[in-house]
Design a protein around this nucleic acid. Sequence first.
DNA 1: CCTATAATTCGATATTTCTAGAAATATAGT
DNA 2: ACTATATTTCTAGAAATATCGAATTATAGG
Lengths: 99, 99
Amino acid sequence: MQNGIDDDTAASCLAALGHPTRLKLYRTLVRAGPDGAPVGALQESLGVPASTLSHHVQALAGAGLVVQERNGRVLTTRADYDTMNRLIGFLTDQCCQGM
Amino acid sequence: MQNGIDDDTAASCLAALGHPTRLKLYRTLVRAGPDGAPVGALQESLGVPASTLSHHVQALAGAGLVVQERNGRVLTTRADYDTMNRLIGFLTDQCCQGM
DNA sequence: CCTATAATTCGATATTTCTAGAAATATAGT
DNA sequence: ACTATATTTCTAGAAATATCGAATTATAGG
């Protein structure tokens, strides 16, 4: 199975998710499933200007929470569940005192 | 059992934990156990100036991740596991698509 | 090659966060 | 009252983040 993440990586992930728009964005990608969604579709469903959204997507990508793949003009973004699972593992192991 | 948290509360918790110093702080409190730790002890173990630390503690308290209780001159801070468990529940339920 | 579409990067501003010294508050003991 | 200790609040500057229109890049199809 995947190994754990360090403190600073965990903090980066948490910071990336710690913004209402980005958290909604991430959840939208999770609901979109393993095929992900093009940026344009995210823009429509979140109602955020394209340039703003682009920055938020990059913030999540920088933390490793999403990956992007280009298919022609369309840039598909999808959630990286591995990173999320490692993050949850970190919180469960390091922040819960065996509860 | 505890009920879930909403999007905005989750984002606040994630933002509060999304800072290296605050994440270390929270982990230190978890390791300190249910009795918590006085601010002074945290200051010593983290090596952060008192005023800076005070702000970070308040950031965690504002998100409901820690609670403080005064005993004489000593202000004891302890982790609120309930909030953390709700946060982990949120991430597991809303951000993992049943994985 | 031209046009349309998808998305990013640029540029500029506004806002928030972070940091930490100094001053203030709260409490305890003498 | 006085002094020491614990912690916060005040203040202010620096750094980072957020926002979004306009310009730009990349690609596809005629």
